[in-house]
Amino acid sequence: MLKKSLLFWLILSPLVVVILFPFGVMFVTAFRPREELFTYPPTWTFSEFRWANFAEMWVKTNFGRALLNSLYVSVLSTVLAMILSIPAAYALSRYRFPGKRAYRTFLLMTQMMSPIVLVLGLFRMMVTLGLVNTLNSLVLTYAAFNMAFTIWMLQSYFSTIPRDLEEAAWIDGAGHLTSLLRVFLPLAVPAMAVTAIFGFINSWNEFVLALTMIRSSDGFTLPVQIYSQVAGRYQIEWHHVMAATMLATLPVAIVFSWLQRFLIRGMALGAVK
């Protein structure tokens, strides 16, 4: 076992290094004093932890505003997607109905639809709807593009909750609503939470649509705001960019690391058959 573990870690080590490398870069650059950014020859060492970088960055990059925008878009789009997905997933896992097969096919196809291919049409549609440059355009599109994933995940988890629990509740005297609220939902909450968090992360990280729909910097979400600090600038304040990147990614990375085993289980359960 020990020999095997060492061997496996040895094989995995190049990959592990390459994965962790950007985190090191982020960390070192974010804390480094500005003067040491362009030392020659380049080096990892630096003289002090300059916490002030973060405070400066917060003001200069308008980080708080972008953070609020990101939160608004991610929370609302996730809530919307969940409200629409939960009944749909329940119907898929519990009922037979005409067109079920066609509906599942449609879901699979929308899961494959990429925003980039439709981005021009989406932009024109939002212009028509008068939603361009509003965060709500992102709420709607993120919810729509996330729904296929959330419905699949929820459906595969719902199917693991035995139907006879609800039947037992009916026989015990519960109506459909009561059995949903008191038997089904308490059992489905963990699955719904996990699914919602993945939906949230997807929205949090989205780039193309946010870049396209939002025209003024007041509405930028974090990825676009950080990108705008880099794109087409003569002088890039890398220590600010890295500090912002670190603040934007670290919480998500931690939550994701904690939840990734649920994703594997979801896959095993049939999100990908």
Binding site: W9, L20, N205, F207, P223, V230, T249, F256
Partner: peptide, 24 residues
């Protein structure tokens, strides 16, 4: 731990990953 590390790039927006690598 190995699982967590190898899954890590998934959690980070491609935009951020690209920004960091561009600087690196």
């Amino acid at each position: 731990l190995a699982r967590v590390i190898i899954m890590l790039p998934w959690s980070i927006s491609l935009t951020m990953t690209a920004v960091v690598w561009r600087w690196a």
